[in-house]
Design a binder for these strands. Structure first.
Lengths: 238, 238
DNA sequence: AGACGACAAAATGTCGACAGTTTTGTGTAT
DNA sequence: ATACACAAAACTGTCGACATTTTGTCGTCT
């Protein structure tokens, strides 16, 4: 509706927080990269106080790690806990999506359906421009539109945090697989379409199964990434 | 081990954070109470900077609400979302406790068993001194000892956050029911004992059912509280 | 040459002060 | 007496400077 511009009387630290959050989730800031307070202060033309405030907020969400008396760094991708992350994403996706199907209103159904179409378009745009952002952002929007319909603020918050981390993982995968040949938006959209249909008929059992399959698809993409031998062409004997 | 005293070279804001967190979870600070920065600065003999930092951290955990350009307040108890809170507590308790039973080590089992005994003692102390803190803290410790054994850092974090809020609810219930007549530590401990036994024999299905019953017990205590007519002795006609 | 220690540089942690906004209180007009 | 306008007070948001801690370097000693 309104939202004339993106700068609508935000406080300084809020702007820094929002910008850094976006940079981190889009992997424009590399995991492990140190975030110097004076450097950020210069970049944003602000004092260190609002910078610190933004960093503390980000630390609360786990997006950055504060090393006491040392530099704050962008949270590293935790490969060690990746299986547990995927387990949790699966669990909360099943829970939110099932509850959404059972409790959704007509209005929420319409929003979910619109989010599906936006995803398909964004995914095609990503292939056309070789830019992963639209694909990943619209996918996030679609699943969050479903999650919001579950009406459980606790599940929404936790699932949203996991999806945030999933954004970083998605971008990381795209960075290494620069050619987006294996991205088939129609395949993903086929699953999304089934989800919307299940939500439309309030079929909780069906969407829980679909959510599980969808999470496993994501899991498989990542196992591919982790298993891929990125050094096979490097000779170890010479 | 070490831990000579509680003040072991902590930074100022960390001390404020820790203290405020404890005060909020123990309901020494009432929900909705405004937290004035200058007042807190005087109380802790610090500047406003470390105070603000602590408040921002607490806001990230949802323990306080920051009203822009207005005073920060202790997060109100959200009665409207209480059913959803209890649903989520049930779900994550089942998940963490089942995984704990299936993945625990012998060392973790011993810690859980010790936490059970500590709870029984703390609960008796609470009755003797009419102070709810030991009962609630040792109950938290017991369930977190189980949760830690599930080895999933995401579930541990989210379940821990829910248990934090459960602490506040528990203290609130005790404050209104000043007589702790209905507190039967042996009953709760009986359930705890069954849980430990299920974990000992790695019986995931059994402990999931026990966790569900346990969550329902908590739910019932709260429904009693919510349903109780606290105004029955107040005349509305005069 | 390697190890230990003092010194220097840089970053974080904290402080006191100023600016902008919201709330409170007062006075006036109706 | 009530409602509105304005002023004063209180509080948050931000700033620049100082204090403390850590890190890196250099020099000396073994």
């Amino acid at each position: 509706m309104a939202e004339t511009t993106k700068t609508e009387k935000l406080t300084g630290s809020a702007k820094v927080y929002k910008q850094l959050r976006e940079d981190i989730l889009r992997m424009d800031l590399a995991p492990g990269q140190p975030l110097d307070e004076v450097g950020l202060a210069e970049r944003f033309s602000l004092s260190r106080s609002p910078i610190r405030e933004a960093l503390v907020k980000l630390a609360g969400e786990g997006l950055v790690h504060v090393l006491p008396n040392r530099s704050t760094i962008v949270s590293p991708i935790n490969f060690q806990d990746l299986p547990r992350f995927l387990d949790t994403l699966d669990l909360l996706q099943r829970a939110t999506h099932r509850l959404a199907a059972e409790n959704r209103t007509e209005e929420e159904l319409a929003e979910i359906s619109a989010a599906r179409e936006a995803f398909l378009e964004g995914s095609r745009e990503s292939i056309a421009t070789n830019n992963s952002v639209p694909h990943i952002e619209r996918n996030y929007d679609f699943h969050m539109a479903i999650a919001r319909a579950c009406r459980n603020p606790y599940l929404i918050r936790y699932y949203g945090q996991l999806l945030d981390e999933a954004k970083r993982l998605g971008h990381m995968r795209f960075q290494f697989k620069s050619q987006t040949t294996d991205l088939k938006p129609e395949d993903l959209d086929a699953q999304h379409k089934q989800m919307v249909e299940a939500i439309a008929r309030r079929d909780g059992a069906a969407i829980e199964e679909l959510a599980h399959e969808h999470a496993n698809l994501f899991r498989g993409q990542f196992m591919d990434y982790v298993m891929a031998n990125h050094t096979q062409r490097v000779a170890v004997t010479y």
